[in-house]
Design a protein around this nucleic acid. Structure first.
Lengths: 118, 118
DNA sequence: ACATTATTTTAGTAAATACTAAATTAATTA
DNA sequence: TAATTAATTTAGTATTTACTAAAATAATGT
């Protein structure tokens, strides 16, 4: 997969754009990112971070047991301004929430799925 | 779904970017687009065209029984230059083919799926 | 060593997606 | 009118994806 495909695939979901936004201005630990996204598990956040990292859209700095992520704004090139423009609107956060709700998929929180071996 | 989400979701697959490229410089009929994509059915192309149209990334002009599609380059804003840059490379067509092959999903051509009522 | 904390990875599930083949719609032509 | 052509839409399937919960990994602290 070339860089363009990885970039556009990674940016193709509202969830990952929300994560990218959280690490846009400052770096944040994976746990802090998860804390800002109350409707998703830590595991899911970690998976999205990996996709963003593999696409080269975020950097990762280990410090102790934490890992700090930060948007690689230069790597986003022409997409940088488009994302910033969208995030500029004051009511945008509400739109993003509605959009996330609309775009949700997969099992819902609290639904029991399966049990793993002990 | 806001415009940004529709745009990035539509651009998120190599197949739709390939279609967009085909209608980048000149308009083409749906059939001509299908003709340039030998590994996909006309129906699948039509579905992709609808997604691109709904996202506002292509325009559609009916003439007789044909429909001519064309990229709405202005609507692509900051993505325009990124796409053009990727398409500029001479060997890019080969890369796109490899990428499409890698990204293929769904039933393969020739596999019998089901039979509809007569 | 053991427990705690932070994160990743794995295994499994539900939903979305990309696709095919067939049916349908619509415009043109015989 | 019926046949032909161009395209869309529908119904059904396989694959991918986004997710959860649990297990595993890794660093730190006791």
């Amino acid at each position: 997969m070339d860089a363009m495909n990885a970039t556009l695939a990674a940016l193709g979901t509202p969830r990952r754009r929300e994560i990218l936004r959280l690490v846009w201005a400052d770096e944040r630990s994976a746990g802090a990112i998860h804390g800002a996204l109350p409707d998703v598990t830590f595991g899911a956040v970690s998976q999205h971070l990996r996709i963003l990292f593999d696409a080269g859209l975020v950097s990762c700095r280990a410090e102790g047991r934490r890992r700090f992520y930060r948007a690689r704004r230069r790597a986003l090139g022409p997409f940088k301004s488009a994302l910033e423009a969208q995030w500029a609107g004051a009511l945008d956060r509400l739109k993003v929430l509605a959009e996330l709700e609309e775009a949700r998929r997969g099992p819902r929180a609290g639904i029991r799925t399966h049990r793993r071996r002990r």
